[in-house]
Amino acid sequence: MLRIENLKKSYRLPEGGDIPILDIPSFQIGAGEQVVLIGESGGGKTTLLHAIAGILSINSGSIHLDGIETTRLSEQGRDRVRAAKLGYVFQTFNLLSGFTALENVRLGMTFGSGKHDLNRAKDLLNRVGLGERMNYKPSALSVGQQQRVAVARALANRPKLLLADEPTANIDPTNQQMIIDLIRTCCSDENIALLMVTHSMQVAGQFPRVNRLEEVNHVAKATSKPVGV
């Protein structure tokens, strides 16, 4: 499903010099597999997810997504793959505030070539328990409800891989478990592979496979605070 080889990413500092962030010789996720990624803050987890999503250019290496080597594609090509095969749930919910819950979910299938399926959008909102609040704007929803909308949106385009970056970091413990369950059942229902970043050992413990970024990332002694010398 996802295959990463020799991925290298470094940031150029404004005052000159590069800080290497990622150096991953090999990393793979199988179809429908659910993986949790943990690691130090500032270690590069978000950077890795952005690289997989193709919204961040990498220095070298290759990323294969569902058989497509996205690192060889043009930016437009990566956009197309992202629209078709990826779902993304962010830490802060990143719902568009001007759009209703339903519209936010529909946006999830607006940019791909797949068909625009209004029923699926409604279906998903029902599944995340927001069937009654489809026409609410995000500001009228609780934090947990907003994240449920974000999950529904990430699934709208029937992705092959769902990337979730600390989806429960801002949510109280009860809702936290509900969101995790929701994501996991939806993914297994539709055979969607899942790569979730979390800082919660309690969450990580529920997953069959847990990877520490530092295990796969061989960057020369990744410092959590490279700047501020």
């Binding site: 919204i55 956009d79 197309r80 992202r82 990143n94 719902l95 568009l96 946006l107 940019f111």
Partner: peptide
Amino acid sequence: KRDIAVMRALGARRDV
């Protein structure tokens, strides 16, 4: 900018 970035993350092309 954030909204735009979100739409891009949802697969919207730059020209869109």
